[in-house]
Computed example of a mutant assay.
Amino acid sequence: MMITSEVTEIGPNAIVESDPIAILFGPEATNNLKDVAVIQKFDVRHPEFNLRRGSQISIRNHTYTVTFCGKLVNANLQGVGHVTLCFSAIPETPLESAIYLSPEKFPGFTVGDKIIYTFK
């Protein structure tokens, strides 16, 4: 199954060059969250996610493989469009609201980018 979202806003403090993560939220995010987040809007209302290790996410002509998917990820994406994308190795104690991706290369984000979540 594939679910697509589009980047509609990028907060002024959302991208930090030295920190290879992106915090994503849906359009209902508060203004405080929008300041530090990449806002995504899904192509379907209330999509049902089943992301897990081995799923793929494509951003800006880069395809990433999920190496870790936290327990909270699918429910958070379905509810408020939230996930933290980590383009780094899995730490000893990974975030349960995060997806860790390989390769560990930050793609950058621009308004209008498509994010494609692919899973079984």
Rank of each mutant, 00 (worst) to 15 (best):
M2P: 01
I3R: 02
S5D: 02
V7E: 00
V7K: 00
T8M: 08
T8W: 08
T8P: 03
P12Y: 13
P12T: 14
N13D: 08
N13Y: 05
N13Q: 08
A14T: 06
I15H: 00
V16G: 03
V16D: 09
E17G: 07
S18Y: 05
S18M: 06
D19S: 08
P20D: 04
I21S: 08
A22W: 09
L24N: 06
L24A: 10
G26D: 03
G26C: 07
P27G: 04
P27V: 03
P27A: 03
E28Q: 10
N32I: 14
N32K: 15
N32A: 15
K34R: 13
D35L: 15
A37M: 04
A37E: 01
V38K: 04
V38D: 02
K41I: 06
K41P: 01
R45K: 15
R45I: 15
H46C: 03
P47T: 15
L51A: 11
R53Q: 11
R53F: 09
R53H: 10
S55N: 06
I57C: 10
I59R: 09
H62I: 09
H62E: 14
Y64R: 01
T65C: 15
V66N: 00
T67W: 04
F68D: 13
C69N: 00
C69W: 00
G70I: 02
K71A: 10
K71M: 06
K71I: 08
V73A: 13
V73D: 07
N74D: 11
A75K: 10
N76Y: 11
N76H: 14
L77M: 09
G79F: 08
G79I: 05
V80A: 12
G81C: 04
G81N: 02
G81W: 01
H82P: 09
V83L: 10
V83Q: 04
V83W: 02
S88M: 13
A89W: 07
A89R: 11
I90G: 02
P91N: 09
P91W: 09
T93P: 02
T93N: 12
L95G: 05
L95K: 11
A98R: 10
I99C: 03
I99S: 01
Y100C: 09
L101Q: 06
S102R: 07
S102Y: 09
F106C: 04
F106S: 03
P107G: 06
P107I: 06
G108A: 07
T110Y: 02
T110E: 12
T110N: 09
G112L: 05
D113T: 13
I115T: 09
I115F: 07
I115L: 13
I115Q: 06
F119N: 05
K120Y: 13
K120T: 14
K120E: 13
